[in-house]
Design a protein around this nucleic acid. Structure first.
Length: 484
RNA sequence: GGGCUCGUGGGUUAGCCUGGUAUACUUCGGGCCUUGGGUGCCCGUGACCGCGGUUCAAAUCCGCGCGAGCCCA
């Protein structure tokens, strides 16, 4: 036990989720709080996770016709105003630059809260004919939204890292397909990389991206029963193209307005990752993202030390040669128990122990981070065996998260039942809904739960015939949940 | 938006009520010791969130800020 030494995690995930989360983020070395409220410093171990998420997504984007570009951090006010819905949507949380050095600027500059209004004008310039379409641009950058509400590392910070994709297409069908391709990729990155099952859906009309025709989302459920909007993909229709004059000459020489999309995933994905898999021992990472996938801890006595280190080093090169990310922890002044605890805190998915017993029998002992399961396996073929165990660790994480999700989708037929069910269990509650934002209000007021999504398929039959709140005919199924 | 709690070396913390010398663990640097779940010893570096007030004297009391966390809306 720690016995007064607070090297590890001291808060309980189950009983003090917020404090626990803050402690994991800091003690696992992912981030520190910056001197300005609402900002964080991302440390190398945290940034490495983000880089891996980037690597996966960026590769898929490029495989599907996307090109990366970079647009300025600042957006002139006059540009921002060209799409009035966007201005109104983000106005309260835009940070403004008013001075350059000692001089007041003639026109103030917005720190981008999102970049549609600076990217679209250039897309309009670059698109002349149908031959220039589709145009698919993406940028990895940070944006600033001056949130009034409380912040939490990675989940909600005033500046956050993300990617924003912006595309233009000749037809609605193509643009819609584009939005779906990106939603598929977001679902895939959550499920295959982060080991987090998600729900796919649409945002209700009153909660769409400002100016969008349709906003689609992937939602992940956190262990405290709140949902996180994991990523969004918007079909913007022609409204943005109209505002920015993004038109093209079609094959029949007619001038037509393009259909556009935008889509983004932020480092909030990391917040969901940490929150879901980690435990009272500290960080838990899936092998796909862990900066160190395997840590080798040698266990020696004075007389056999050289032999054991040599054996451990050989195991290290075998695993490294197989392409795994391996650390050999041969620090002198730390005993094995200390090292176990430290690497568990830092989220290394698999530990390899080699001591006199293993050397004697030409074996190694593997220990899974999530549950401590151990297996002693042959030294021969240790690389493929280790890879199998890493796959198993991933599967365990996914299965746990999936089990949680499946048990947390419930139904309710009345306002009281919605309130009662979410109040008692958290999670998602499906209910019939007439489509009026007004029917969300009583639920929002009472327990701060919202309609976080509706089914992707607009024609899907509602779960009940009547709106659970007003009793009128239900148009669709609303998923109510508390949200991060 | 409303309420509550908290802020002391890099991390964790004692001291605060009852004003006067700041405690310990850990990290880090140096030295010794040496390992199957946070090993022990010695030396060293290192802190009272900011501003104002009360006072001979403020980490401590008061006010205002800033920051963090929680609860409610």
């Amino acid at each position: 036990m720690t016995d007064g030494q607070d090297l590890g995690i001291t808060e309980s995930k189950e009983y003090a989720t917020g404090e626990w989360y803050a402690e994991v983020v800091q003690k696992a070395g992912l981030a520190d709080y910056a001197p300005m409220g609402g900002f964080i410093v991302t440390r190398p171990r945290g940034y490495a996770i983000w880089e891996r998420i980037q690597d996966y997504l960026d590769g898929w984007f490029k495989d599907t016709g996307v090109q990366n570009a970079y647009f300025p951090l600042f957006i002139p006010e006059s540009y921002l105003e060209r799409e009035k819905d966007v201005v109104e949507g983000f106005d309260p949380e835009v940070a403004w630059v008013t001075h350059g050095g000692y001089d007041e600027l003639e026109e103030r500059l917005a720190v981008r809260p999102t970049s549609e209004s600076i990217i679209a004008p250039f897309m309009a310039q670059w698109v002349r004919s149908h031959r220039d379409l589709p145009l698919r641009l993406n940028q990895w950058c940070s944006v600033v939204r001056w949130e009034a509400t409380e912040t939490k590392p990675f989940f909600r910070t005033k500046e956050f890292l993300w990617q924003e994709g912006h595309t233009a297409h000749a037809t609605q069908e193509e643009a819609w397909a584009e939005a779906m391709t990106r939603l598929d990729q977001y679902e895939r990155v959550y499920e295959d990389v982060l080991a987090l099952p998600v729900l796919r859906g649409r945002k209700p009309e009153h909660d769409k991206f400002p100016g969008a025709h349709t906003t689609t989302t992937v939602e992940a459920l956190m262990p405290d029963g709140k949902t996180v909007q994991g990523a969004t993909s918007h079909y913007l229709g022609t409204s943005f193209a109209e505002a920015f004059d993004l038109t093209y000459a079609d094959i029949d020489e007619e001038e037509r307005t393009a259909h556009t999309t935008s889509w983004g995933l932020s480092w909030r994905a990391m917040g969901a990752l940490i929150m879901t898999h980690s435990d009272d021992q500290g960080l838990v990472l899936p092998p796909t993202l862990a900066p160190t996938q395997v840590v080798i801890v040698p266990i020696w006595q004075e007389e056999n030390r050289a032999k054991i280190i040599e054996y451990a080093e050989a195991v290290e090169s075998t695993l490294t040669d197989a392409g795994l990310r391996v650390d050999l922890d041969d620090r002198e002044n730390r005993n094995p128990g200390f090292k176990y605890n430290e690497w568990e805190l830092k989220g290394v998915p698999l530990r390899v122990e080699v001591g006199p017993d293993e050397v004697e029998d030409r074996e190694v002992t593997l220990v899974h981070r999530p549950d401590g399961e151990r297996a002693t396996v042959d030294r021969d073929g240790v690389a493929p065996t280790t890879e199998d165990h890493l796959d198993t660790v991933f599967a365990k994480l996914y299965a746990d998260a999936e089990e949680t999700l499946e048990g947390e989708i419930r139904e309710a037929g009345s306002r009281e039942e919605i309130l009662g069910t979410i109040g008692k269990h958290g999670g998602y509650v499906k209910a019939g809904w007439c489509g009026e934002a007004a029917c969300e209000e009583p639920v929002k007021e009472a327990i701060a739960a919202e309609i976080v999504m509706v089914p992707e398929d607009r024609d899907a039959e509602p779960v009940h015939e009547e709106c659970a709140v007003c009793g009128n005919d239900a148009e669709e199924t609303a998923y109510f949940a508390k949200s991060y």
